[in-house]
Design a binder for these strands. Structure first.
Lengths: 221, 221
DNA sequence: TCAGATTAGTGAACACCGTTAACGCAAGGA
DNA sequence: TCCTTGCGTTAACGGTGTTCACTAATCTGA
């Protein structure tokens, strides 16, 4: 295959994913359909099989894009804070995390919700740092690690070990602390995004800010 | 309609829901299909429309059943602990919560995951105590309230108010504390159940127990 | 007991869906 | 120039939710 046609091929794959994402945004995860994608692109459905072997693999690749988008969004706000202000960098990233999720409910459903068919494989391929999901976690681990080296992280006992996994060079007590905080923020953000707080409060932002405050106040100064 | 045929009708509705749940368990949320339900029941698909106006409303009613099942499971283990041991009652319920979710992944996806079509309405009908989701929350609020009256709950500022919602008689600072703890446990349990910790740890139970320990140690004794 | 109304269930049909197969066409390289 | 490769087509299979017209059974009330 020539270089020219290869580039054209990649461009079409990009367009397919973009069309799929538009349908994801407008109609939710169930609205992603090969036939609708083909319709929007002005071609027929079987033509898409020249680019993806099945719908699942399309969604799988879409997952990577979404994770990357979210990570880049967090990195953008992070880089507006002084590099030595690790606490401040963490805060703006966590807030951007919530903001992105709430403003991208459909995309969040795909990457943070229960494993859809095809997405379940996604989470099982996270054994190296190149994985988009792991990279997203990494941008939160980095400042935590810096705070740890400054003696500001109130780490507890090392309960889980990261040596066998992607983040091999992170001290186990830091990794444990990270995962605990991670699941807490995951919980309050996803509970709100998935509508599981609507019966309790009209606006979940004060709750989220309380969680953020609890984190900052737990830091050793 | 006579009493006899009404009972027969309810029985059929029950059978429909049970068949749907079997398919949910074996094939995941996407495997619930009217035609498959009808096939399993030995009837044709349009016959189901005599009992439910659409598939969505079937799933909606299934949600209530699942929430009730989970609540009953928690109440069972709760009632094996002395009534005055509110801390112990909370602990066994939280552990049972996780156990139930991990052993019922498909059902948990439906009631704790992102709103499926038809389920989104479910969470918007939670304005009274009779709602199954609210009742599930209530069994956790009760012992927390008891601990509060004993002066053992390390409540912070009252950030959210429950007066306008279902749990009207709960002090706002208790309600705030409950929601914060609730989202934390929701986070660590659902992150594990949805596979979002598989890249980090092989077994998430130590993390969960660390969260539980952090809760008990935060209680005033 | 018997006519009428209500109910459960059926089969056909419509409009979708993912996916496969066989085929045509146009461009690229030898 | 030939011919291989890749892109796109149409047709088809089996699946889905849902609606409609119709039948058969059952229940109701006089």
């Amino acid at each position: 295959m020539s270089d020219r046609s290869q580039r054209r091929r990649d461009l079409t794959r990009q367009e397919i994913k973009q069309t799929a994402r538009n349908q994801l945004v407008t109609g939710g995860p169930n609205a992603i359909s090969l036939r609708a994608i083909a319709r929007d692109m002005g071609i027929t459905a079987p033509a898409l099989y020249r680019y993806y072997p099945a719908l699942d693999s399309l969604i799988l690749e879409l997952c990577t894009d979404l994770y990357t988008d979210l990570r880049v969004a967090c990195e953008v706000v992070r880089d507006q804070v002084a590099p030595e202000d690790h606490e401040g960098r963490l805060l703006v990233m966590v807030r951007e995390f919530r903001r992105w999720v709430l403003s991208h409910p459909a995309e969040s459903t795909v990457i943070f919700g229960p494993p859809l068919p095809g997405v379940d494989q996604f989470h099982q391929q996270c054994q190296d740092l190149s994985h988009a999901g792991v990279q997203f976690g990494q941008i939160f681990i980095d400042p935590m690690l810096a705070l740890y080296h400054q003696g500001r992280l109130p780490v507890g006992k090392a309960i889980v070990d990261a040596h066998d996994h992607a983040h091999g060079d992170v001290p186990p007590e830091v990794y444990t602390y990270f995962l605990l905080k991670w699941t807490q923020f995951y919980g309050i953000i996803m509970a709100e995004a998935f509508g599981h707080l609507s019966w309790a409060v009209a606006d979940a932002e004060p709750l989220f800010e309380a969680e953020v405050t609890a984190f900052t106040e737990s830091l050793i100064r």
